[in-house]
Amino acid sequence: MNLFRLLGDLSHLASIFILLHKIQTTRSCRGISFKTQALYVTVFVARYLDLFYRYVSLYNSVMKLFFIASSVYILYLMKYKYRPTNDPSIDTFRIEYLLGPCVLLSLIFNYKFSVTEVLWSFSIFLESVAILPQLFMLQRTGEAETITTHYLAALGVYRALYIPNWIYRYITEDGVVDPIAVTAGLVQTGLYIDFFYVYFTKVLQGQKFELPA
């Protein structure tokens, strides 16, 4: 564990709390893509199956359980408690275009051709693109509530911090590198660049998040 990874994980935790706070206080999941949230549940369940057969640390297990539980809870809030505020007609990204390639990539690129390792690879590839339905929705509506942009920013910071974490590990752990996680991670972080540009130039200057028409 190093500082970059810890701060990254805390930023990930913060993003979930921000999202829950947004839904609870506005009593609405307007502006949140159900598809992206459902993809995160898929990601966490596929990756954290190792809870059953591998112990890394208490920190690791607690975080995994939290990510699975909170992501399922968010789906519940969107699908049941605040269902009327969820508008599927603007959440139109075709996720089969993400799932198909991720299945294919995980069958080709994995560290061992076993069910759990392929699922792990799949979860890494899927996480890298899971935000696309959300960004697509943002693009379509052209604006977002400030709190929603804080949620996305925290998620983006989490991904960005994993990059110095890998560099740090490469240096301190004698050349250790996880090519699958790094490649997918770089792609994932790249997806946030446009968003961050608007976030820093508008939202953090006190303006509303609005995309140019």
Binding site: R5, D9, N60, M63, Y111, V177, D178, A181
Partner: peptide
């Protein structure tokens, strides 16, 4: 090992 899957990250 560089490519050995350790998966100690979240």
């Amino acid at each position: 090992n560089a490519t050995e899957a350790q998966h100690d990250e979240l």
